[in-house]
Structures are given as C-alpha cells and as structure tokens.
Design a protein around this nucleic acid. Structure first.
Lengths: 168, 168
DNA sequence: TTTTTTGCAAATCGTTTGCACGCTG
DNA sequence: CAGCGTGCAAACGATTTGCAAAAAA
C-alpha cells in the first residue's frame, strides 16, 4: 500500500541513513516508513503525531495512526527525529538536520517556537554534572515567555493559567 | 468527611498562605484541602498524584483521586506546589518551601533526583531572552544522566531506550 | 441559604497493543 | 517462506468532568 514504488523514489540522505539504521536492527524498509520519513523532512516546523497523520492523509498516503507512532519511535531511536513536549501534554517532534542540537524558547501566547544554541549553556551543564558526579547523557531546556509580537497584548490571567498547566 | 475538625488543626504557615489564596479567589477552605496540603508538606521528596493519593489513604484520609488532582491544581496556582515531569509521562510534584527555585538532575538508571541552583544559569537565560526579544516568564531545565552510584553499572541499551522514551 | 466542593463513575485523549493478514528480505 | 510490518479496533493510563449529595460561608 506504499504510495510510490520504492524503486521510483529518489533516495535522500535521510532515507539512506534510516535504511542503515533499520538494517542494523534487522528491521525492514517499507513504503510506509519511507513515506513518513519524507513527509517529516519536507516540513520545516515542529509537529505532533496527529498533524503528521493528517498531512499524510492529505498527501494521499493512507497510513494508519499506529504506523505513524511506530515509525516516529524508530526515527527517534535512529536519532533523525527529536521528541519534545514544548510544555504541551502531547509529544512534539522535529526533524534533526545533521547533528545540530538546540533548545527552545516558547511563546505562551501564540506558541511560537524559537530555537537557540548557546555553547556556554552546554559548558555550564557540563560543569553542573561534574559538580554532582553525574555523567551527562541528555538535557532539555525550555524557556517560556512572550515573544516580541505578544509581549504587550497578552492576557495576564490566561498566561498565568497556561503556566500552571504546563507539562514540563 | 475531613479526618480532623479544622478547629483542631494547627494552622501551619503553608495553610495560612493557602487560606489567603483561596479567599482571594472566593474559594472555600475545606478539610480535604488542608489534609492534602499537610500531607504534601510533610513529605520531603518529589511525588506523583497516585503516590499522594495512596499516602492519604494510608494515613486515614479518605479523599478521592479527583479531589487530589483538583487540590494539586489549586496549590500549583497558589505557587505552593511545583509541577514537573522529570521525563516521565505523568506529572511529578514537589512542595515549594519559601520561594526558592531550582532545576533538576535526574538519574536515568535509578531515577534519583538532585536539585541544583545556579545563578549564572539564570543570568544566561535572561540574556538569551533579551537576545530574542522575549519576556521571560518561566523555564524548565532537566539534565538527564547517571548518578555517581549508577555511572558504572548501568545497562547501556536500557539507558539508550529510556532516553528515547523521555517526555521532555 | 447560596455557592462551592466532593465522590463516583463515566468520559477524554494521546498513545499503545493484540491479532489476522500482507509484504520484505 | 520466515519474519517483520500493517491496519484495525480495543485497551491503556493519567487526568478530567458531569452530576447529585454534602459542606462551607
């Protein structure tokens, strides 16, 4: 039921990497997996499973929600997709281009997400871990606030409430 | 059904603060709310709603899960309880003593949580926000790794898998 | 007495899973 | 052709909610 025969697909760098990952786990390269991978790397923004599923439907791929979740999980394992929450109660995902790492600034009013990378922040964390004898493996920093566009015109009470409900 | 008559309870500083919060919202000070507040401030560690509910049962308070959730929400709004995830898929809570703020180091093997506070980290975040024109309202930094006790003897594969499933 | 709170059980909602059939290697 | 993968629908698990009875103001 893959929308394109695999032989016709232009195999992107991501696809090649995913294929290697799958092979290393003795898993199979299916049409669905390639379709999902392509759909993810075609978009620029953060997304959730439901949005991705809807996008796939719209683009003709008739892929079940279960397969979307299962494939996202594989892509996270392969390191090609990053899973975040951004304060929401459901998972958010983003394609990883290259190996870059970044953290997020999230607007509590319009939900705009700005990515940033600060080497001094990374250093600071290394120091904190050393101080406590921890071996650093992963970290997550989310800064919530109001973006320039929303800084003035945001409803105080609504924002306060949103902060209380944040899933961080 | 409150386990102790309110008049008999020693009103702690937390209780007084909670009472003021409730009054300001035209809400009522009930036995259940005081019992939950006391149970939370009696414990030293992070906890989840289920654990708290179990603790209340054990201590004789016969308070429903719904009320536990509703009260936790109020306490978060009043600023006396902080809600975190610590990477789990369910919420974790902790009593706020005074106004201190801290971030968390979490062991991916034994789940030990270490709290830390670094003023330079706070400053760094202020700088990042300024750089992007954001008004900083809240932040969450979670550092995942292996604590001194687990650093050697952790199962690589299990840890890798846990990282992939983190809800951050 | 008026308004809020409670407990219960049912409802939500994102996500996962068992199973029978279909495809990949 | 032996395993994996897929779709479906049911199961899940944490949290929320509608409602009628109970408590606070």
């Amino acid at each position: 039921m893959g929308p394109l025969p695999k032989s016709r697909m232009v195999r992107s760098a991501e696809a090649i990497r995913f294929e290697a990952f799958l092979r290393s786990k003795k898993l199979k390269l299916t049409g669905e997996r390639l379709t999902i991978l392509a759909a993810i790397f075609r978009r620029e923004t953060h997304f959730d499973a439901e949005t991705l599923h809807a996008q796939l439907r719209k683009e003709g791929g008739d892929i079940s929600r279960a397969t979307v979740y299962r494939t996202l999980d594989l892509l996270v394992q392969s390191g090609q997709v990053r899973k975040n929450s951004l304060g929401a109660h459901h998972a958010n995902y983003e394609a990883v281009h290259g190996d870059e790492h970044h953290d997020h600034l999230i607007c509590l009013n319009c939900s705009r997400v700005v990515e940033f990378y600060r080497p001094d922040l990374e250093d600071l964390q290394t120091g904190i871990c050393a101080e406590h004898g921890f071996k650093l493996i992963h970290h997550s920093l989310q800064i919530f606030g109001l973006c320039p566009a929303c800084a003035g015109k945001a409803d105080e009470a609504a924002i306060r409430n949103r902060v209380a409900q944040l899933h961080t």
